[in-house]
Amino acid sequence: MLSKSQARAFFFGGTGIFSVAFIALTIDSMRKLPNQTNSDNITEEVKRGKHIWEDNNCMGCHTLFGEGAYYAPELTKVVERRGKDWIRLFLKDPAAMFPGQRKMVQYHFKPEQIEDTIAFLDWCGKVDSNGFPAKPPLAQRLAATTPIAPAVLLPKPVPAIFTTAACIGCHSIAGEGGAAGALIGAPPLDGVSTRKTREEATAWIRDPQKIKPDTKMPDLVPAVVSEEQLTEIVNYLYSPATPQPVTPPKP
């Protein structure tokens, strides 16, 4: 049986050996890290963005590289997923984007602070994180078994206003986007011309609460969408739709 001095030797010896191994691996990681994280691309904007990230304890709700608090979405690849326009609009007034949903603090960011935050998140998204977050492995298989609702899709490309006004966050357009729509019952905009008249659609976008007081649709005109842009939106929605070959929608 082991004596006490042997047990002590095991403790100090083991601790010593593995501490040295750990430090050696740390030194190697620090050598490879600048390349793997594109540290040359850490601009002043990115640095300021990191400060904003920390000064507001964003990790207290969100996760980044999977580290954080699981109360709000993982943001590692958020710029790739949502696009910069969407994030710009979202950070201006988070609650307006997801009415009646889990709340994000309104930080009243200045436009340049929003740009810094986006630059930081964009840099994070380009770090080689060994494949995290993984593409959902079952999504493809599910999409193959889901029946396709709209046979008629709006033409592409979708005008920029749909992204800058963040319509695409809730509504799916031309078979794409609409991630938040399922939550609040926002319908796809494909085929809206078959359901409503042009005048009805215009009046609805201009003041949704007037028609349906409890609607989750935010009041966008004129704060985010001007009268001219409203006309542009409606023109697009009522443009002649091209029948689409039936393909599974992207997950």
Partner: peptide, 12 residues
Amino acid sequence: HYYYIGVPKYWL
């Protein structure tokens, strides 16, 4: 803790 933060794969 080092799997997915942007350091080499040997940490996996």
